[in-house]
Nucleic acid binder design. Structure first.
Length: 473
DNA sequence: TTTTGAGTTGTTCGA
DNA sequence: GTCGAACAACTCAAA
């Protein structure tokens, strides 16, 4: 038996199951140090907010609990990662650091710096197929989703039996100091999303198990924000509380076990969502400039208006368009937003208010507990029409049409905008059209209890078409 | 090199 | 109410 000590440096892999970095550390050493470093460079970033940090802290508590059940514990330090890792190496004579590779520009800089000083082994796991692997015949990266997804699906996928089990026992040196795991401020804890690996696996299992599983109606129900039709796994994937491989394996098995053709389509659509996540990891890997700049420089001359009052109205859910405002309140209150309303509210900021997509990107990153630099940036550039495989610039969501189509009875709207609770169905999408009598009857006076629209959509649409046209003409 | 088919998520207009 | 075409031509990927 070896007498070696290794560090398992935990970053976005807060799980024991199907964890290749942990597995490699246990293969190499008989004692390991499960180490999480509170990186001030990350925690103080303007792209981070308290809800995601609270979720992370909750996840650290759960991971510590799992480790203690196996005879170990989580070691938490705070500061510059290279500095803290050096200190732990000195204290413990650990001879190697294992970590799951992360691919954001910041993570690559950080890990590059660490590996100049210390023996750092990076292992796969953030995505099923590592970025850079899937390439066109000529060697270049894909920038269109569909051909990327075809290659992704043709590559070997993990089988159930290939998934690494959680280790039964973890031996951690006892003489190590650790910070107490911090707790988030109570008003920032996202109560709809209890963190941790067992909760993540419970959600996955519930989503895909049995012939009546939600995954089989996903193709339709995912578009209805008033219904819980999605897996709600994004925060768990964000922090690796469940592995990408285990999730993809479950999706493929659901496809194979689908009870009908329509059910199969539903599961296929969900698998595609997982592949979209990997597509955008690839895009950010190959084109790091997309953090901060348009993927397509053709749009660099779009003249944004960036009205700060309108930006604040959007952020606070006071645009006067109920579907947009419900979405923005859901984001700020719960730390999550339904995918359909992410598109609607993003389109409204960019195409109705002509506010730079980067301001929306940052606001989402501050509030989403699933906020991921690759996926969030990809989504915003898609909406703005500036990205890879983007929506054409003339594709402008109509917030009223979208609202009628996907929240026809106003269930979602009323959930997040209680002031519209008694507004009749026929006015719920355009409450400013309510008669004076109905306003009084429903206790919702426009301009007093709920704002009038801050822009008129039809005019805003024309304005955006002409601004984009003159920028690219 | 040239050609060909295809491309997440929409809206509006007019028949 | 429903349906197809136009939006505006563009870029990508592969043969």
């Amino acid at each position: 038996m070896s007498k070696r000590t290794a560090i398992w440096w935990i970053r976005r892999d807060l799980r024991l199951r199907e964890n290749q970095a942990l597995h490699a550390a246990l293969d190499h050493a008989n004692k390991i140090i499960p180490l999480f470093i509170l990186d001030s460079g990350l925690l103080d970033s303007p792209y981070v907010g308290p809800k995601r940090v609270s979720f992370l802290f909750d996840g650290l508590q759960k991971l510590d609990h799992e480790l203690r059940q196996r005879g170990g514990q989580l070691i938490v330090r705070s500061g510059n990662p290279a500095h803290e890792l050096s200190a732990v190496v000195q204290e413990t004579a650990a001879d190697v650091i294992f970590a799951e590779e992360d691919f954001s520009p910041y993570a690559r800089r950080r890990d590059g710096h660490v590996s100049q000083l210390l023996p750092l082994m990076l292992l796969p796991g953030l995505v099923v197929h590592p970025p850079g692997l899937i390439r066109k015949k000529n060697g270049g990266p894909y920038t269109v989703f569909t051909p990327f997804s075809k290659v992704w699906k043709a590559l070997p996928l993990p089988q159930q039996g290939d998934l690494l089990p959680a280790p039964g026992h973890i031996d951690v040196p006892h003489d190590l100091t650790s910070l107490t795991i911090p707790q988030g401020e109570s008003d920032t804890i996202p109560h709809n999303f209890p963190a941790g690996e067992s909760e993540a696996r419970r959600r996955l299992s519930q989503f895909v198990s049995g012939p009546e599983a939600a995954v089989y109606s996903y193709a339709q129900s995912r578009n209805t924000p008033g219904v819980n039709g999605t897996s709600q796994l994004s925060p768990y994937l964000r922090f690796g509380m469940i592995s990408a491989r285990e999730t993809a394996e479950a999706a493929v098995r659901a496809i194979d076990n689908a009870p009908s053709g329509a059910a199969r389509d539903g599961a296929e659509v969900w698998l595609n969502e997982l592949i979209w996540r990997e597509f955008y990891v690839n895009i950010l890997y190959h084109f790091p400039h997309v953090r901060g700049a348009n993927y397509n420089p053709k749009y660099d001359n779009v003249q944004w208006i960036n009205d700060s009052k309108q930006l604040r109205a959007w952020q606070e859910g006071r645009t006067g368009y109920p579907i947009v405002d419900a979405a923005m309140r859901q984001l700020v209150q719960s730390g999550w937003m339904h995918n359909r309303t992410r598109m609607i509210s993003a389109s409204f900021l960019v195409k109705d208010l002509l506010i730079d997509w980067r301001l929306g990107e940052q606001w989402f990153m501050q509030h989403l507990i699933d906020g991921d630099p690759a996926a969030n940036n990809g989504g915003w550039q898609w909406t703005a029409g500036t990205g890879t495989d983007a929506a054409p610039y003339f594709r402008i969501f109509n917030p009223i049409t979208q609202s009628k189509k996907f929240d026809s009875r106003g269930i979602y709207i009323r959930r997040w905008l209680p002031e519209l609770g008694n507004v009749p169905d026929k006015n719920i999408h355009e409450p400013w059209l309510m008669s004076r009598e109905d306003q009084i009857k429903s206790g919702c006076i426009i301009g007093r209890d709920y704002p009038a629209p801050i822009v008129e959509h039809a005019a805003a649409r024309e304005r955006t078409l002409s601004v984009y046209k003159s920028a690219t003409g």
